[in-house]
Nucleic acid binder design. Structure first.
Lengths: 248, 248
DNA sequence: CGGAATGTTGAGACTAGTCAACCATAGTGG
DNA sequence: CCACTATGGTTGACTAGTCTCAACATTCCG
């Protein structure tokens, strides 16, 4: 599987920035992918890392009987494709029109051996990714449908919107949200409707959410995540945790 | 949170071996912990890595309203405590009588900067940990109770028993299993009973499981995991995936 | 033996899933 | 311009699996 590190825009120079500074390759090959197109598939050899330049990317895994789990969404600045094994175990797919910079793993590994800073950055990126996947797991394992959707909305908001903006664009479709949250598409719909009826949000368009009561949603979302109350990070700031990271 | 790398016994020298070879500190301080004792808690500063020397360790996270998720079990040879942030976000607790070697992070980091091999080993450990957490997440998000328990049993069997052994000791109690699988304790019990009635297992003691039909359990467990069918690793071998890894 | 902790079983409630119908939107071609 | 279709999204009725609450059994330990 390819796991993506998160660039963590507000977090000083993240892995993405570090890499792009260190790797001319990033600029060398930027490849476009159409919506729904597979970047790498389950079983493909792990030859490259990928830096998302434009669009939205998802990392998914299928079961034999067709169930699907979305492990992460990647936005511009995120890196995916980090994976220990010789073959990918997650599929990386373009959600909409996407551009990805191709970063040959061989070159990366060579650099990693020589450059301790890059090494540390990648290592920290990987452990951070693990941290985020744990938030995701806690949410999936121990939350109700409404808690999951609230968590999702706050996560997307903190990632994609300028801080404080309360209108979020959902590039992914309902099925992706459902598979990310471990729910069915119907439950996601119903929960959206319920949020509307409770005055928490409005839906100007299907893929556009206006958050009317961010505090209420945050409270819902926080029920099973400590991030909001964790003292180490600035309190009362939306956790960047949603930035899931997945191996590609 | 502290994430533990897995030593991967059958996988050549794992991170644990590498570290113990490289770090005299490993032998320097081996600390015992009583059953139930907390090694590090949520919010504690991240000062050390830990190598499990004896016993069973769990990494858990609590929600404000008391729900609990177990993210990983660590067995002798596993390392926990890997975490990017300054404070732990998971608690590390001894399940039974445990001995842990204390590995100062400062010393590790210094070494990591100088020794590329250690660095690569740790990095691969982290990405592998992420891979494993994804298996865990897929299981929690998309499986029935019986699939989860079957998955759990096959995981424990592959980790703790000599290959092929069909009697597995469960050092953890039912509540730990439930919180690991995202179920309630009652559902875990009922599923055990159901497995007994179907002739899949016997329970000579509460904490001792004899697996009568490993293939049937494996089929159940495999419904939402590719590991069994993945071609990159030896096929038809129990996946070592269960070896969850958590940051401590 | 007594008590506490752990584990099991049962009955009923409730959440989310399933199956199915319907609606909205966008694109296509007559 | 208007069917017609395809896709994506919503809603409803019903079901099923898991949770909740409660009682009871077992094991452990002083």
């Amino acid at each position: 599987m390819a796991y993506a590190f998160n660039a963590f825009a507000g977090d000083g120079p993240g892995a993405g920035e570090l890499l792009s500074a260190r790797f001319p390759h990033f600029d060398a090959a930027v490849v476009p992918f159409a919506a729904g197109q597979e970047v790498v598939g389950d079983g493909d050899p792990t030859e490259n890392f990928f830096l998302v330049v434009r669009g939205l990317v998802r990392a998914v895994k299928f079961t034999r009987d067709g169930r699907r789990q979305v492990f992460a969404f990647y936005m511009p600045g995120d890196i995916c494709g980090l994976e220990p094994d010789a073959t990918h175990k997650l599929s990386i797919e373009a959600v909409d029109q996407v551009a990805m910079a191709i970063l040959p793993r061989r070159a990366c590994r060579l650099r990693m051996d020589v450059d301790p800073r890059l090494n540390v950055a990648l290592f920290e990126g990987a452990t951070r990714a693990l941290t985020l996947s744990i938030d995701h797991m806690l949410m999936i394992g121990r939350s109700s449908a409404e808690e999951r959707l609230a968590w999702f909305l706050m996560m997307i908001r903190s990632r994609s919107a300028p801080l404080g903006a309360n209108v979020v664009e959902l590039a992914m479709q309902r099925q992706d949200i459902a598979d990310y949250l471990g729910l069915t598409i119907e439950t996601v719909c119903r929960t959206f409707t319920q949020f509307k009826e409770r005055g928490l949000i409005t839906l100007p368009r299907k893929r556009l959410v206006e958050i009317l009561r961010p505090d209420a949603l945050r409270r819902l979302a926080a029920a099973d995540r400590d991030a909001l109350s964790a003292p180490s990070v600035a309190p009362n700031v939306e956790p960047a945790s949603g930035l899931d990271v997945a191996a590609a």
